[in-house]
Write a protein that binds this DNA or RNA. Structure first.
Lengths: 175, 175
DNA sequence: TATTGTTATACTCTATAACTATA
DNA sequence: TATAGTTATAGAGTATAACAATA
């Protein structure tokens, strides 16, 4: 962005007032919350990408690298990576292409299934993701702009939301 | 997405455990919350866009139309729209191009400043945004997946976050 | 037949730089 | 000189469809 000037009033609070004025009371709070989540995501993503850029990573590629670094043998089938990251298979293909060109991952044959390809993190990939993670931890993740109780509430609320949305099946957030 | 299969375990909770195991305790909760916000935004955006698609709108274009529908005279200078929507000027140019081609907005000269152009919503634009809003209110905004107290907490927390991030200057969230 | 992954293609939003017109 | 907006260009993620190889 060229000049992210601070507005004198919260545009989302203003929109909520307009919703109220129109009589859309039942949807006003939801509209405000949803829009706030959108904007918060945008702010956080910008911070993350500015940290990752010097490491030659985008957030999508960082997430893939981090996932692989935690996997057994540092490798996963493409479709497992796609499922775990909740992204489209073609997005994984694209990410792996870039990461492979940068020498951070490599493709390997699956021992049991000839259709399947494994993505495997390289030693260089481990170094890069380790350094990037430490810097992210020291900046965004370690100082996200929410207090400890707020983080707790967020993780609880959003965890429940994601479960209800069908992201995963889990019993730690009982219905 | 082709097959958004529900995972058996929450991938974000799993990542948090890995963070803990590595000793990145101070950043674990923040990482989980930030990642949860990212994923929640993705889910909500997908719902919104699926509602808007039959109306010929994306979320970015809907937001612009909604902003104009609340503006005096239904018109705003391009740079005001850019500031209020927190998007790059070229993004506004692009959105206005598409909306203008669809007959939902028009460009007009600014009476006092020859450099400035106004974006003005058309009657057709008002009809479209009204119908789209009602449908969004009846689905996503009116039923966002959070309880009323949760919405309240979210609006409070994210409002404060956005203010601290420099999005706007306001006194309703005192430091 | 079904599944895995790739390719080709297309459409978002985003961003920088160069440019025109106006102040 | 500074500002408003556009254009050109590029990059990102996302998505569908067609395809090859394998099960």
């Amino acid at each position: 962005m060229s000049d992210p000037i601070a507005l004198s009033r919260d545009p989302i609070a203003e929109a909520r007032r307009h919703w109220q004025d129109r009589g859309w009371t039942a949807a006003a709070e939801g509209m405000a919350a949803v829009t706030s989540i959108m904007r918060t995501q945008q702010i956080l993503l910008a911070r993350i990408e500015s940290v990752l850029k010097p490491h030659g990573l985008t957030f999508a590629r960082f997430e893939l690298l981090a996932l692989l670094s935690f996997a057994r043998e540092g490798a996963l089938p493409m479709n497992k990576a796609s499922a775990r990251l909740q992204v489209h298979p073609t997005s994984v293909t694209n990410s792996v292409d870039r990461l492979e060109r940068a020498g951070l991952v490599r493709r390997a044959a699956h021992p049991g299934d000839g259709r399947t390809k494994l993505v495997e993190i390289t030693g260089q990939g481990r170094n890069v993701v380790e350094r990037a993670t430490l810097e992210l931890n020291g900046t965004v993740f370690g100082n996200p702009g929410f207090s400890a109780p707020e983080l707790d509430r967020l993780n609880q609320m959003l965890g429940k939301f994601r479960r209800d949305a069908g992201d995963f099946v889990d019993t730690r957030f009982p219905i």
